[in-house]
Design a protein around this nucleic acid. Structure first.
Length: 282
DNA sequence: TTCCAGGTGCATA
DNA sequence: TATGCACATGGA
């Protein structure tokens, strides 16, 4: 996708490949805020970007240009991806048209691990609140916002602290996983292939097949992953199944066979499409 | 009041 | 290998 860089801004003039609402509200990120009709703020680790909708595109205002170019996956061409996916199924064609400006973000693995442990059996609004609470509780105060906590900062919390914040039964998982990751270089996992990566992630407390898929997809940009949650199960049974299927292992197998190394993209278009449809009670 | 939310861990057969 | 249940919390 074409974009221009100035001192403190990234200029995007391609509306079909970048839509802040679709990118941020499709469920892949929890730390963002709608400032007004045309403005969002986005926090990742200790960095912030302001997204402003302009007449013919977007401005991304930030001190960390290079970080957010990678974060928003700007060097990737989503037209090719959408076209390829659309050839696969009529539902995908509708979903990619609906969520046209979605991009899969490159987010920090540790932030994804903790955030998606919190996501288990939880709803998106509450996940956002809990991630924010965790950041305020022990993340670095950056002035106008709080950074997502580092491993060491989370290690200062007890299980009891986490319970008091409302983490519920996930408190123990967060506690145990932070301890296990203390001496692990999460960046070194980037060279792993999908199967090995998912196997390793699944050894973490509170990380099962679905959360491992989310971490691999959003934290390691591994597009072979297809997280199957309650929404994907719904859309699979609405549009892809010949008979009702509740086995998520089988659903994942069928969908990854259909979408192959574009599975991660497909999942996000479908997830957003189904959730918005249901929101509008269609 | 009951059901549900981007599920996981554990016991049981 | 597969199934069933408990697990915190809050909104609808």
């Amino acid at each position: 996708m074409k974009y221009e860089i100035t001192n403190d801004k990234i200029l995007i003039k391609d509306k079909s490949q970048f839509n802040a609402t679709h990118i941020l509200e499709c469920g892949q990120i929890f730390r963002y805020r709608k400032v007004d009709d045309k403005t969002y703020s986005v926090i990742s680790e200790d960095k912030i970007a302001i997204l402003k909708q302009m007449e013919n595109g977007y401005e991304i205002i930030t001190k960390d240009i290079k970080y957010f170019v990678n974060f928003f996956d700007l060097d990737n061409d989503y037209e090719i991806i959408k076209n390829t996916l659309s050839k696969n199924s009529e539902t995908m064609k509708l979903a990619t048209n609906f969520g046209y400006g979605i991009r899969i973000l490159n987010q920090p693995p540790f932030e994804m691990i903790i955030s998606f442990i919190i996501s288990a059996n939880n709803n998106i609004k509450r996940i956002q609140q809990l991630v924010e609470k965790l950041s305020v509780k022990c993340g670095k105060n950056m002035g106008e916002y709080y950074a997502f906590p580092t491993i060491d900062e989370i290690l200062t919390l007890s299980i009891e602290d986490l319970k008091q914040m409302g983490m519920g039964f996930r408190s123990k998982y967060i506690y145990e996983t932070a301890r296990k990751l203390k001496n692990i270089d999460l960046e070194s996992l980037r060279s792993y292939d999908t199967k090995i990566l998912l196997e390793y992630l699944s050894t973490l407390s509170g990380v099962g097949p679905k959360v491992a898929d989310c971490i691999a997809l959003f934290g390691y940009h591994d597009m072979n992953c297809f997280p199957v949650d309650t929404w994907v199960e719904k859309i699979y049974n609405s549009f892809f199944a010949t008979q009702k299927e509740t086995n998520r292992v089988k659903i994942r197998k069928n969908l990854t066979e259909m979408f192959k190394d574009l599975s991660g993209y497909a999942q996000q278009y479908l997830f957003y499409y189904k959730r918005e449809l249901d929101k509008n009670n269609v």
